[in-house]
Design a protein around this nucleic acid. Structure first.
Lengths: 127, 127
DNA sequence: ATCGCGCTACTACAAATGTAGTATGCGTAA
DNA sequence: TTACGCATACTACATTTGTAGTAGCGCGAT
């Protein structure tokens, strides 16, 4: 079940995001998908993808012409969990975090209600 | 109002946490407050505090004997905001984040209610 | 007055990260 | 079937981050 603790840098995480979104992509695809003022060089992206491959975060799927395709080998959720846990650790728990979201206007009371509703629905049906 | 974009590393953030908690502290205090298996050397902590000072994140307050005291020069909230914003950017918003918290059992429906109540109370009184 | 010890200031260095160049090979259009 | 161009594999290097050593000064006990 792959309990290896894969750690991603900021840029690596950004690349993973692209892959999670596209499902499968070439280095060129990733480069194109990265939205920046000054886009990174092709080989820069290539290096990141290679490092991700070495870490076991992505894997090659197929080849088209001489271009390799990559796909995520770890789930978005597993990465999120790690990041969220770190943040929770810092701010001191979920409640403070949510409170912060509301205080800073990132989350409204209505949003809270909405989430509640969603969660309840899921609970009833799924699990 | 100091719009400089101060960026903190993980360790720097940890040190800031201690300072926010203690309000004011010497390097030795910070070292003692850091909870790890293998605690960092005194001079390691000292280096971090110095870097924080250069970044304008902490400032010297006074001297006792030959030991300097430091205090935070930036707010906890400003740092949290930055980190939270990054995470929100990644996961795609507050609602998904909160949903994730609930899904992974980090936040219960009761917690949600509690936050709601707190927020409402604050709204009524404070702002 | 002086000596020791702790604290500071400065320096050093390895690992991680961001960034990119070069060499070379393979596929495809002509 | 050959040359061109894009992709890969490998290498390189600057910056950031984590980690710590050393020199030397000043405070406080004697």
């Amino acid at each position: 079940m792959s309990r290896e603790r894969i750690t991603l840098t900021k840029f690596e995480t950004e690349v993973m995001s692209v892959l999670w979104r596209l499902g499968e992509a070439t280095v060129r695809d990733v480069q194109d998908a990265i939205d920046r003022d000054e886009p990174p060089a092709y080989t820069t992206v290539q290096t990141i993808v290679q490092r991700l491959e070495q870490k076991g975060a992505v894997r090659r799927t197929r080849k088209e012409g001489n271009a390799l395709f990559f796909e995520p080998a770890i789930t978005r959720k597993s990465v999120y969990r790690r990041l969220v846990d770190e943040l929770l650790d810092l701010v001191g728990g979920s409640q403070p975090l949510v409170a912060h979201l509301v205080e800073t206007g990132k989350l409204s009371l209505d949003d809270l209600k909405a989430v509640e509703k969603t969660v309840k629905a899921i609970k009833r049906s799924g699990k």
